[in-house]
Amino acid sequence: MAIRSQLLKGILEGCLLAIIARETVYGYELAVKLQTQGIDVSEGSIYPILLRLQKEQLIVGEMRKSPSGPNRKYYQLTEKGKTALQAFRSNWENLKRPVDQLLEQKEEY
């Protein structure tokens, strides 16, 4: 699935924030976690989003030694990121049900 639509981009941003909020992760780990959640995007698509989230100061990355050897860039949420995740969560909650309902009613028209 290529990420062309703005909608998908926004949702993916929210998902990355949610994963990073739970634990400090590096890029590859993040891609795997997305996929195990069943969100099937190409693995590379997370990197432009990570860059954007850093630019907006929602996350910070830090180069650190990993247990298995090489230096990796680990990401964690900033205070601003926590607020953004809250906002995403409530927006999503508010939209989810009405949109679902709307789509289910489709047959009746």
Partner: peptide, 15 residues
């Protein structure tokens, strides 16, 4: 930032 993202992509590609 450029070198960091390049390193991340390389690590990922290697895996």
């Amino acid at each position: 930032e450029t070198e960091e993202i390049l390193m991340e992509l390389l690590d990922h590609l290697f895996i």
